[in-house]
Amino acid sequence: MTEPTTPLTTAEPAVLQPGPLVSVSGLAKSFGDHEVLRSIDFEVDPGSVTVLIGPSGSGKTTVLRSLNALDVADAGVVRIGEVEVDFARRPVTKQEVATLRAQSGMVFQSHHLFPHLTVLENVTAGPVLAQRRDRSEVAGEARELLRLVGLEEKADAYPYQLSGGQQQRVGIARALAIRPKLMLFDEPTSALDPELVGEVLVVMKNLAAQGWTMVVVTHEIRFAQQVADQVLFMDGGVIVERGTPDEVLTRPRTERARQFLHRILDPLD
């Protein structure tokens, strides 16, 4: 693999205001009869990394997808920077959803790269096709982003020609290209072969070191220990424990968190 290189100027996080960048309060969501989220509250400080962990079906992905309204919550308020959407007030307009969504970059579990576009075109798609920015200016910026994720020599390749880890790194560059305030990661390494997980985590760790505000859903406990400022442990649609990695991952207070961590750290026990 190509090692991701040092941070670059164009990929720097936005200038940060005092106070939390993200506030979520009273977030609730049901799919049919199934209550996926019940009253989720948390805040994310600018430049910090929040990791969401928990068993599958606990609602962590839905929390993440509510932050950019890919899943529209039934109730609750989400604020990112100056943009606030109250999901209890119906209907939530397309304009509100679009404005909220523009605040964050999203990295999907199965990357969802555009297969008919080259790597470079994938990265420029947002700025050129949606934000209508100048193509040549964006192309230069996109190449720097590809350098940041260690893939500048793959600019003209199609996604199918890349490994899973490389595809995921292009996904990160594509999300960064829209100049978001916040980066969202939905289990970015869960679909990867074990030997490809590291290269993606290294890129994420570099972003965190540069001061990006990140919310990450993951099962990579070591990543959470090293990089997270805040860990939220979810189960059954609620946040059961929250705190520093040390508090939640090393000395969990609840039995549910202890069992969950035991299951993923020592699966054979």
Binding site: L70, R101, M106, H112, G126, R174
Partner: peptide
């Protein structure tokens, strides 16, 4: 979904 997260309508 991916298209909408990079801002496309």
């Amino acid at each position: 979904e991916a298209a909408s997260t990079v801002g496309m309508g």
